[in-house]
């Protein structure tokens, strides 16, 4: 998958500097947002769809990459930019995966990547954030809202704390031109994303 648009990786020296600045500047001004590279090592991107309203079929994308810029002191400064490798889709059967990659569905040959870029992030409750952004699937771009919930913070020994997020959302596949098998597959696709990030400093919610 092409990664021409990726920002340079944050160097360890830069992280230490940011950490030092954060620790020093904690009591006063808000710290700058720090950018993190994320990919499939830090979480999962899954989806599910209803069949005849009777049962669900699930899948996930094994490869994705992007950046999240987070300022723990100010969530509204968060920026997310992710690209998902469509060909990495995995489903319960190989034939289902093949169907989902076909032109009537994701059309992987024409559109090898799904892109999401956030436009705004708002804290809407304790540990809950509404992420608004633009989602591009199959060459079609639509606004998309995702609900990110901080589900856990783990502090292990001297390691930096790790924040676990569950991000959910729904979209209508027909909005992206995927109308095949309307008599069998639902239009609503549920998105479930899990991400964990090691942040040098995580501010307490409110």
């Amino acid at each position: 998958m092409s990664a021409a648009w990726r920002w340079p990786r944050v160097r360890p020296g830069g992280v230490v500097l940011a950490l030092a600045l954060l620790l020093l500047g904690r009591a006063t001004a808000a710290a700058a947002a720090t950018s993190y590279d994320i990919d499939q090592r830090y979480g999962s991107v899954g989806f599910s769809i209803s069949e005849l309203g009777l049962f669900d079929t699930e899948g996930n994308f094994r490869k994705f990459a992007g950046q999240i810029a987070i300022d723990p002191a100010d969530p509204a400064l968060t920026k997310i930019d992710v690209a998902i490798d469509v060909a990495s889709v995995a489903m319960s059967s190989a034939r289902a995966a093949k169907l989902v990659l076909s032109p009537a569905y994701f059309d992987v040959r024409e559109h090898p990547a799904i892109r999401f870029r956030s436009t705004s992030v708002a804290a809407i409750g304790p540990n809950r954030y509404l992420v608004s952004g633009l989602l591009r699937i199959r060459g079609v771009t639509h606004p998309q809202q995702l609900m990110a919930v901080l589900t856990a913070e783990k502090i292990v020994g001297k390691d930096p704390p790790t924040a676990y997020f569950t991000v959910t959302g729904k979209l209508h596949r027909s909005a992206f031109g995927m109308t095949a098998n309307e008599n069998f597959l639902g239009d609503v696709v549920r998105i479930v994303i899990h991400i964990h990030l090691s942040l040098p400093e995580i501010a307490q919610a409110n």
Binding site: E51, L52, L99, A180, N181, F184
Partner: peptide
């Protein structure tokens, strides 16, 4: 074929 999901089901 899988394309004809309803019929297969």
């Amino acid at each position: 074929p899988f394309e004809e999901l309803l019929l297969k089901f």
